[in-house]
Simulated assay, not measured.
Amino acid sequence: MKIEKILFPTKFRELAFNSLESLLVLKKVGLKEVVLYYVIPREDVGFVPYGGYLKEEEERLREEARIRFEDWQSALSKQGIKSKIIVEVGDPVPNILAVAEKEQVNLIVVGRKKRKGPELSFVGSHTLQLIARSKFPTLVSKYMVQFEYNGEKVTRVNDDIFKRPLLASDWSEPSARALDLLKSLNGIIEKAFVCHIIGVKISKGLDKSELYRIEKESKERLEDYCTRLKSEGIVAEPHLGAGRTPLEIIRISREIEASMIIMGTTGKDRLHEIFMGSTSHRVAEMSELPTLLVP
């Protein structure tokens, strides 16, 4: 599973270009093309009460997007990466998914929203819908974030995201696909980490012998994942945690100084995921690190 073609939807928020630049290292492992995409919200050009349409406003927004994108294209071209500009009127989530399907991309990259409090999410409702419905690996990019850690406000810049990735596995098929994607990044990884969490729901009510069996089995699986990474020339280290899964993944990511978190999305019903969320979605919401979700 190589990343050869990226879909990069943007609202031209602050640091969006910096986020794009942080992905260009993927050229070393096969990146060939970036699709630069802007959705003009339908409500920005629709004049619903009178049944009209603001054609001049649409043309202005299209022209602004084109000028900005052409500047970005220059930076991509200097790196030897092809690019394409697409600007459409519509609804962000269905439009992005339709373009991803049409262009057959290997990765969708979405930005984070501005976090306004220590307990609030880095991920907006559109992004949650997108990652719940996407058939493509989706990276929630968080180039610069502010968050509370040990009672202090911390600012973090995520500009070398593939250096120390943490793969959080639940042994599912999506986790196996996430491992394959991680293996394809050999050449830009300094060190990889693999973790598994024995969750509260699993451990609750078990006697010591059964818990020991699960622990032993989990360690063996972690070693197997690390062996597979090492066979691809990637230095890998296993970590086993226990407790509330999203919080444990975030705790481990901080202790090992990970640069990003990679997870398979769960096998839950898609509609359930949109409304109730999943472990991978909660990690994307809560962690200050870029989060790559693999369906």
Rank of each mutant, 00 (worst) to 15 (best):
I3F: 04
I3W: 01
I6E: 03
T10L: 03
R13A: 06
L20M: 10
S22P: 07
S22L: 05
L24H: 12
L24Q: 05
V25N: 06
L26A: 06
K28C: 07
V34L: 10
Y37S: 04
V39Q: 01
I40M: 01
V45L: 02
F47E: 11
V48F: 03
G51Y: 13
G51L: 10
G52H: 05
Y53A: 10
Y53I: 11
E57P: 05
E59T: 11
L61Y: 03
I67T: 15
R68A: 12
R68S: 13
E70D: 07
K78R: 14
G80Y: 06
G80E: 15
K82R: 14
K84P: 12
E88Y: 02
V93F: 00
N95D: 04
L97G: 00
A98V: 02
V99L: 03
V99G: 00
A100E: 01
A100Y: 00
E101D: 08
E103M: 01
V109A: 03
K113E: 09
R115D: 06
G124I: 07
S125V: 11
I131A: 02
S134D: 10
S134W: 00
K135F: 01
F136G: 02
S141V: 08
S141R: 08
K142A: 09
K142L: 08
V145E: 06
Q146D: 11
E148M: 08
V154I: 13
V154H: 04
R156T: 05
D160K: 05
F162A: 12
A168P: 12
W171H: 15
S172H: 11
S175P: 09
K183V: 14
S184M: 15
N186I: 15
N186E: 14
I188V: 11
F193L: 09
V194W: 02
C195R: 02
G199N: 14
V200G: 08
V200Y: 15
K201L: 08
G205F: 04
Y212C: 13
R213N: 07
I214C: 14
K216H: 10
S218T: 15
C226D: 13
G233Q: 12
V235S: 15
A236E: 03
A236T: 11
E237F: 06
E237M: 09
E237P: 07
P238R: 01
H239A: 09
G243Y: 00
E248F: 00
I250S: 01
R251F: 02
R251H: 06
I252N: 01
R254T: 09
E257H: 04
E257C: 10
I261Q: 01
G264N: 08
G267Q: 12
L271M: 12
H272W: 13
G277H: 04
S278L: 09
T279I: 09
M286P: 15
S287A: 12
E288P: 15
L289S: 08
L293A: 04
P295W: 01
P295F: 01
